[in-house]
Design a protein around this nucleic acid. Structure first.
Length: 832
DNA sequence: AGTCAGCGCGCG
DNA sequence: AAAGCGCGCGCTGACT
């Protein structure tokens, strides 16, 4: 095939790039009649060209039939360049697109995306089907990004597979067979019969409203793919609250009528089914999730995109079928159902594929069965239940925070000029944000501190790249800098104190006020697939679906420890708030994995490692160590255990505790630390070897962390992967133990008919709300359960380091008191 | 008017 | 010749 190259303009001076390149205006190359055009940021290096051609070939496309070109025609990898240069270069690329006239364009990286579609934001537009002048454009990240972070390789290749499947017009082996619209009374009756015969159901709901407790909340439609006992596959869609639905006026009744059939279906599958189950349960259908495809996908590969769409498009080559779910009520009901139904049908095929993968990987299957799906059920109920918040305290404390902030700001005005003297005051921006004093606005702050108060500029941010050249970065106002400035001006201390009250007043308190429901309970969302280590994450309600500016959220895992805030949450009347905490769980896991003899001895003797570290750092006997000192030691322990260097230690010691260490002192402390615990460095070395050999590490129960970045050519990226290889199994195992503790406690509560419910977890702690008169039986059960998990029975793991759980009890979280072992076992005998 | 990255800070 | 890990939210400032 003949390769052609169009004529560029070697004399081009439209942007700065021409000044520093060997060849100005290097045009693309490839066959004239190419069906596919590949656009990179700039002409590819040999490495990237090879990488692209290899991957195209593996995806089933012929690389020699592709036209390769770039958004920028001047090749210089050192110079920074962005959309400004892309704009200057646009005419040349447009000429090529016009002449070659490809049907498909594959854009690599944000600049190429911008050049070919005008959109910016590669992570958002990645693998979306885009169009430009009748040509189909698909964008993904650049080979340079993949080369730097090989961890991206899998998802990059799956993007290319998707692209190839599109070009070949192959919709893969999975074809949507069409569906039944349940739009008459007769069909509704037939649906009941179908559900009665359904053995396996993949289901999905479409909803409107903030959450299921929102008075405006409603289920727009419910769809399913039913596999019947005789093996028939039927896709169906039931219109509910949608204006075009025949059941619009009595959609709740319609749902209740199918509830009893739904309940009996043995296998109930969904993608992120916690969401669907919450909505269905709210309206009377006790939907289960026996297999969640999203959670399974995440367990199998924590680095891959876990959404149904990316999973299905890359696995089966199906183009994105999604609609704008913000406008569900405005589109025809059949369109909604068609979308809703496809979700369930593709999810069914995803289920078939990943179930097979899980069966191959037995240890992951056990985690999925014993932890993931069990925890999912408890979290559905925890999220539905919510956490009780003390409205009265909330009002009082919110006012305290606002007053404190206002008072501190008032004090600051002493050093702020009168409006008439606002010489050099930052002029009004587009949104008029600088028109007045604004301590949150970094530009205003810069003016005030560095121009008006004349404090020295100690650090600058990133230099800014403009079309005219590089400008120096803006003076930094970060905390570390402010701490240095503190002795120079009294305003700085006040400014630093203000930050906390501002955060309470802008972030925490308003969110709690807005989100408490009519029963004074706050509902959060827990994600079982929100972290790479298997920890839970907590987030604002349905964050990726609800895109409201004022959509405030509650993350129960980041409630400040300050009693003013933590003291707001508690137990409803008749119940007691209980927090069960694993004591130093990560360090105990480190002990288990590293086999360090000193640590083993300390824990087996019931001693406290943080205290021990504090004692030798301070040079004092353990009896004279304060709570504060122990906290500092905690930072030392965790830092060094997970590979922190002396330099970073100096930094965090100052930023967190205002302790000044010289680099030499830090080096000495670090050296002493590893002399004290001789088993740690050999354990680090072992983890490094494992990750270098296999590209992944596993936790004691078999949870996998894939770390393909270990194959990077950049030593910094490699070193990062090595530290992650050290930390991951520890964090993973500790968090799985916590989940197991929650699961086992719930089982025992159920068996003993104890009215006690898990409210959620905070990584190494679980929060409960327990009927007060049941505490006497419940507390010893909790202590015993947490300290004796069925690790041996479920996973064959012999944990030979003692595990200790602490229990705090109170009306409110913030003032819950820790109980002694005697108090736990004799709770009813404690005189109050 | 909406979107996004960067920063700072809340938590373990 | 260097090196803690894991999260989510609100705000600003820059951009479309």
């Amino acid at each position: 095939m003949k390769r052609i190259q169009l004529e560029g303009d070697p004399g081009c001076t439209k942007c700065k790039l021409h000044r520093d390149v060997d060849e100005v205006c290097e045009m693309g190359f490839g066959p004239r009649n190419a069906e596919v055009m590949v656009v990179s940021k700039m002409p590819n290096s040999d490495t990237y060209q090879r990488m692209i051609e290899d991957s195209l070939l593996r995806s089933g496309l012929d690389p020699s039939k592709v036209f390769y070109t770039s958004a920028l025609k001047c090749r210089n990898f050192e110079l920074s360049s962005g959309n400004a240069q892309v704009k200057a270069c646009k005419d040349y690329l447009d000429k090529e697109i016009y002449e070659i006239d490809p049907e498909w364009i594959l854009s690599f990286g944000n600049e190429a995306l911008f050049a070919t579609t005008g959109h910016s934001g590669i992570m958002k537009y990645r693998t979306k089907e885009l169009e430009k002048n009748g040509r189909k454009v698909i964008a993904t990240i650049s080979p340079a990004a993949v080369h730097r972070n090989p961890g991206q390789k899998t998802s990059w290749e799956s993007d290319l597979q998707f692209f190839a499947a599109q070009v070949k017009g192959k919709s893969g082996t999975v074809k949507f067979p069409g569906m039944v619209f349940i739009n008459t009374k007769e069909k509704f009756e037939a649906l009941k019969t179908l559900l009665r015969e359904t053995e396996l159901l993949c289901y999905d709901v479409e909803t409107v409203g903030f959450n299921e407790f929102d008075p405006q909340g409603a289920i727009v439609s419910l769809s399913g793919t039913s596999i019947t006992k005789s093996g028939n596959v039927v896709v169906w869609g039931l219109p509910l609250y949608h204006p075009g639905s025949p059941f619009r006026r009595n959609w709740r009744i319609a749902l209740k009528q199918i509830a009893k059939y739904f309940k009996k279906i043995k296998k109930q599958i969904a993608h992120n089914g916690k969401f669907d189950a919450r909505w269905l349960r709210r309206f009377g259908v006790k939907a289960k999730v026996t297999f969640d495809t999203m959670l399974a996908c995440h367990l199998l590969d924590e680095n891959r995109l876990k959404g149904l769409k990316p999973q299905v498009t890359s696995r089966f080559g199906i183009p994105d079928w999604s609609v704008d779910t913000d406008k569900l009520l405005d589109m025809p009901i059949k369109q909604v159902l068609w979308y809703n139904g496809q979700d369930t049908y593709y999810d069914y095929h995803l289920y078939l594929e990943i179930r097979a993968e899980l069966v191959e990987k037995r240890r992951l299957l056990r985690i999925f069965k014993f932890i993931t799906m069990e925890a999912n059920e408890l979290l559905i109920e925890a999220e539905r239940r919510g956490i009780w918040i003390d409205r009265q305290r909330l009002a009082t404390n919110a006012k305290i925070a606002r007053d404190m902030r206002d008072e501190l700001e008032q004090q600051l005005h002493k050093w702020i000029p009168e409006p008439s003297d606002k010489i050099g005051w930052p002029h009004q921006g587009k949104r008029a944000k600088f028109a007045d004093v604004n301590f949150n606005a970094s530009n205003w702050l810069r003016w005030w501190l560095f121009d008006y108060l004349k404090l020295p500029v100690l650090e600058r941010g990133k230099p800014k790249d403009t079309t005219e050249g590089e400008l120096p970065g803006a003076p930094s106002v970060k905390e570390a800098v402010m701490l240095e400035l503190k002795p120079m001006h009294p305003a700085v201390k006040i400014l630093l104190d203000r930050v906390k009250w501002q955060k309470y007043s802008s972030s925490f308190f308003p969110a709690y006020e807005e989100l408490a429901d009519e029963n004074d309970r706050i509902h959060t969302t827990f994600k079982l697939a929100g972290t790479v280590t298997g920890r839970l994450s907590s987030a604002k309600e349905d964050a990726d679906k609800v895109r409201r500016v004022d959509n405030r959220g509650v993350n129960i895992q980041q409630v400040p420890r300050d009693p003013l805030v933590r003291g707001l949450f508690g137990a409803a009347p008749g119940f007691t708030f209980v927090e069960v905490d694993f004591s130093q769980i990560e360090l105990r896991v480190v002990t288990f994995l590293s086999r360090d003899r000193t640590m083993l001895r300390l824990y087996r003797n019931g001693e406290d490692i943080h205290l021990a570290t504090a004692a030798w750092v301070m040079g004092l006997p353990p009896s004279r160590i304060t709570k504060e000192d122990r906290k500092k030691a905690k930072a030392i322990n965790f830092g060094f255990v997970y590979g922190m260097g002396a330099k970073k230690f100096v930094l965090t010691a100052f930023e967190k505790y205002e302790l000044k260490f010289s680099l030499d002192e830090a080096l000495e402390i670090r050296k002493l630390f590893f002399q004290q615990f001789k088993g740690l460095l050999p354990w680090h070395a072992r983890q490094r070897r494992i990750v270098n050999d296999h590209g992944r590490v596993t936790s004691p129960i078999g949870r996998v962390r894939n770390l393909p970045d270990i194959f990077s050519e950049d030593w910094k990226v490699r070193a990062e992967a090595e530290r992650q290889a050290i930390n991951s199994p520890v964090q993973s195992f500790a968090s799985d133990m916590n989940l197991m503790a929650m699961i086992e406690s719930a089982k025992k509560f159920k068996k003993r008919k104890i009215e006690g419910y898990a409210l959620g977890t905070v990584h190494d702690a679980t929060l409960f709300e327990i009927k007060t008169e049941h505490l006497g039986i419940a507390l010893p059960i909790l202590k015993n359960t947490f300290e004796n998990l069925p690790l041996k029975r479920n996973f064959g793991v012999d944990l030979d380091v003692p595990i200790v759980a602490d229990i705090k009890v109170g009306t409110h979280w913030g003032d819950a008191q820790e109980l002694s072992e005697w108090e736990i076992n004799n709770y009813d005998a404690i005189p109050f």
